[in-house]
Design a protein around this nucleic acid. Structure first.
Lengths: 243, 243
DNA sequence: TAAAACGAGTTGTCTAGACAAGTAAGGAAG
DNA sequence: CTTCCTTACTTGTCTAGACAACTCGTTTTA
């Protein structure tokens, strides 16, 4: 039996018995000293835990211990549903990054604009009870919002659009798919790479003019999130984003 | 960008273009010489392919190339969208299994019936171009359809319900989530266990009476399937020039 | 006061070499 | 002919060291 397998099992029981989720594993060097093995062998052991979805590596910080029973929570009550109508329009968003793209072929097609158009991209992370749940990339044509990058400081993006630019948005189309997280997504969402994400790409139009003002891609942890499609009820039930 | 990522991508295209499944990759040492990198770096690159399910390591023999039609389609055009409205009601269904359940606590809650109620379950597999894409479990309260099990022989379940029982269905609620396949799902869908499924659970009511007549769970391969949510075609906004 | 630079500590990548373990084929011994 | 052994080649594991990249708190600087 390989050393790294032994160490992996040792760490596994140790995590279950002595650590809580949110804590960090001892550093690889410390573990190497403790077990009197090489750091690479420790890494190989931790690889097993990563693969099992028990821990998450964070470069520069450490190795984060995740919920012990992630896989068992799937399908359990811990999950909460969210009306698709409300997706992407949530107040407690934290800004992760801002970018200025020039739309390539693919993006242009999805945004219904000409290739080369300048497009703001704002990435936000939505947390619930301090737990990251959804990562959203908002794409907005620059010419509609020349000074948006200065204005937006977090919170409800759509409320800002309405307040400053007088725009009211309507979802025109939503595409729902599933995929596996990239390393970056895994990090931001604190979510194992071998668990699925629920994705929604949506085009939002200005309710009045019909012009596309936002294309967004949201990626949600599937262990605690699912989307609810309501029957077509009477509209205008979703007005208040602050609720 | 890391070297091993480059090499992994290079090998990926090479596999697609120059190799067939069943063949073996050049040995790690040969690849290391070819790319002028260390063997460990080659191994790290191949790790990526293993993780992606493209190749299989065989100690002492070599690295076997597997069927490689799946992973490339992800995110490509090969994917086709399907309106949620149409989900679960498709003609070219093949029957996989029939069951008679007595609803337990959980199922009863989801189906809005009393625990202990007898429930038909019919599993169907939907294929496209001979490729299995969606696995659907239909749950129907027995008392509504005493002889359904005899009647249904494949094809559109909902058409049969309408023809024989005079029932027209309306989707009341849809819950969309993502998950990993069980072994059985993986087998039926011919889909790797490390790729995600897109799931929809929906309750369908009789349009006239409002009684629940069907609860269904569909699981679709995420590599070639995504769900489309159409805008609400609200009759009141008919004059809208944007549509 | 605010921004920039630094430093300690962490994970990530790459190299280098050694030996273990498994496979397959060929040759030697029975 | 069959069996066993050797040999060559493959992947698997472990060690060792170096530096890159990143995080975070502290210190310095403007």
């Amino acid at each position: 039996m390989a050393i790294y397998e032994d160490v992996a099992r040792a760490l596994e029981t140790e995590i279950r018995e002595k650590f809580r989720s949110g804590e960090y594993l001892p550093s690889e060097i410390q573990l190497a000293q403790r077990f009197s093995i090489n750091r690479h062998t420790v890494r190989r052991a931790i690889d097993e835990l990563v693969q099992a979805g028990m821990v998450l590596r964070q470069q520069g910080k450490g190795t984060l211990i995740l919920e012990h029973s992630l896989q068992y929570q799937i399908g359990a009550r811990g999950r909460f549903s969210e009306s698709v109508e409300a997706m992407g329009h949530h107040p407690e968003a934290r800004i992760i990054g801002r970018f200025l793209h020039r739309a390539d072929q693919l993006l242009a097609q999805k945004m219904w604009v000409e290739p080369g158009t300048e497009v703001f991209r704002i990435d936000t992370l939505r947390c619930i009870d301090g737990k990251p749940v959804t990562l959203i990339s908002h794409y907005l044509p620059k010419h509609h919002f020349p000074d948006l990058e200065q204005q937006y400081r977090g919170g409800s993006l759509h409320a800002l659009l309405e307040a400053r630019y007088g725009l009211q948005l309507t979802r025109k189309q939503g595409l729902i798919s599933a995929g596996m997280p990239t390393r970056e997504e895994s990090l931001l969402l604190q979510y194992p790479r071998n668990m699925p994400l629920l994705k929604i790409r949506s085009n939002n139009l200005c309710t009045r003019t019909g012009a596309l003002v936002e294309y967004s891609v949201s990626r949600s942890r599937a262990d605690c999130f699912e989307y609810k499609i309501e029957p077509r009820q009477n509209p205008r039930t979703e007005g208040d984003p602050s609720s």
